[in-house]
Nucleic acid binder design. Structure first.
Lengths: 298, 298
DNA sequence: CATCGGTGGTGCGAAAACGATCCGGATGGA
DNA sequence: TCCATCCGGATCGTTTTCGCACCACCGATG
């Protein structure tokens, strides 16, 4: 008899394209994936993959099997969401996925409040950066900034939040030094994968020199605080930071609209309802900050 | 993450209504089913069953889960049949040789199952009695009862199966009549070429009169059913026959060990591997019956 | 040409799952 | 009533599985 769980390993390997990547995603050792796939191939009596030096590639047989593996996965997800949706108790696990800056600079205190308010809810904040998939039951609630509503997955239920604006920021003392006539060039600080948004202009302060690149948002913010230059930041980050100031003359720009996303059955759960309503209220209170209206321009 | 294979155990328990029956069907220990279901319930965070003294009954949550478990099973079946149907090398002839009683009284339903599972395999059951020679390519697979392992041909690849025991049997109503004091002598029924095995004693029932001889095993069994006397039979024949009973006081005796024998090149072919693995699993499930443990001694 | 990060594959010791076995209790007949 | 036969559950060695540390190999990169 085929071990159904082997199909899960097969599916991961088929998605990731290599045994090691699949193992990383599954949170197990790559040798385990290797063995489970070998076992599945043995029990099915057919090769699912071509074992290339560059990784695993599906054979024709594997392609056909993949279709039914997806079916099994879909049923498995339905099974889990169904039983989760039945759970009306406040106790239990609640997994929230959101962008790291939202967690670190805005909502973490509110999450803490919520956790104190409901000690029986085990909270799991997934802000590693990857978009957790609600349909795959990797999270129960997603908080995302969406620019075009049409890009929202149609199977998710969305609760609309405030709009998010961003601006161009620089360290306060750096700005003062520039006004005092300091000659050092002011550089653009950008996240490597992003580049300089086309809407960002340097305002009255001219940017010069080569860009300074960081890999993540936190390093970017620290770099700006150090006075290396200026960068684009969401207003709720820049305006809330006492060490930063907006670059005069630089315009704000709408990043998008915040959405609280929930999925199918889990939406009915009491703890999901409690959480979304709680966060929705807090977000409404943050609306001016998010829109960049919390400070007067200078 | 939920272990998909746990769903398989859940499904079996839901179908059978008890952990032990599910374990029997799955061919595992009942403690295993117990653990897997407990694990599934823990990971889903909900009870699937009411644990009644009379067995497991599905809860409302379990009923809902059952539907998707069925979906997973259906996908799993499709997955397996697809990969089997895809495998061109499964087509072809498969010749199996085994002793007639094994075919007639034990394995024929399993052969039928295998044939239904693999409609493209043309099966040839050689149970005429003569020992087909694997080395001479008269058969692809041999199922034999071997007493001394050293008598196995060294060039054959053997897959060891359960041990086979035999006992002394008599018709139930004949036994009852004897207990009631019927004066008719109880005769030994033997196959002409065999005689009475030296390990066979009449137990509490004394044997009298001349032996009754038959030429083949089927006639021997029919004769015993008619109440002519008692005879030695493999337990999987005698215990499975509702008209027969063991002679009280007569001991069991080991006939030997079942072996699944394959030869050289044919062993590598898919249909041979499929068949041997299939039969091996079935044989493992028959182990208690073959060992004479399927009924309590009387 | 050396290095470095990626791949699949392989032994070995630790850890988890398993099977065998026993137990207490419910249940249905003799 | 007593006994046999189910049931779920707990315990205890044993087997299987897993994670870890390696290895060889390939390709890109400096």
């Amino acid at each position: 008899m085929v071990d159904w769980d082997d199909v899960r390993y097969f599916l991961a390997a088929a998605r990731e394209g290599s045994v090691r990547a699949a193992a990383k995603r599954l949170g197990v050792n790559h040798a385990t994936v290797l063995r489970r796939i070998a076992q599945l191939e043995e029990r099915l009596g057919a090769q699912m993959f071509e074992k290339l030096p560059s990784g695993y590639r599906l054979t024709a047989a594997g392609e056909e099997v993949l279709e039914f593996a997806h079916q099994m996965e879909a049923s498995s997800h339905l099974l889990e969401t169904r039983v989760f949706g039945r759970d009306e108790s406040v106790r239990g696990l609640l997994r929230v996925t959101l962008a790291p800056p939202l967690a670190a600079h805005l909502l973490m205190p509110d999450f803490a409040d919520f956790a104190r308010l409901h000690p029986d809810i085990e909270m799991d904040i997934l802000s590693s950066g990857e978009l957790a998939n609600l349909t795959n039951r990797e999270a129960d609630v997603a908080i995302r900034v969406v620019y075009d509503r049409k890009t929202l997955p149609p199977n998710l239920h969305g609760l609309k939040g405030p709009e998010v604006f961003g601006g161009v920021y620089i360290a306060r003392d750096r700005l003062a030094a520039w006004r005092a006539g300091a000659p050092d060039p002011i550089r653009w600080i950008v996240i490597s994968s992003h580049g300089i948004p086309d809407w960002a202009s340097a305002g009255e302060v001219g940017a010069a020199g080569v860009p300074f690149r960081t890999t993540d948002a936190e390093a970017q913010i620290v770099a700006v605080r150090q006075g290396l230059g200026m960068t684009t930041l969401p207003c709720f980050v820049g305006d809330a930071d006492p060490l930063l100031a907006r670059v005069p003359g630089a315009d704000l720009h709408m990043y998008g609209t915040l959405w609280l996303l929930t999925q199918g059955e889990t939406r009915k759960t009491k703890r999901v309802r409690l959480f979304t309503e709680f966060v929705s209220r807090r977000l409404a209170a943050y609306a001016p900050l998010l829109a960049g209206l919390s400070i007067s321009r200078d």
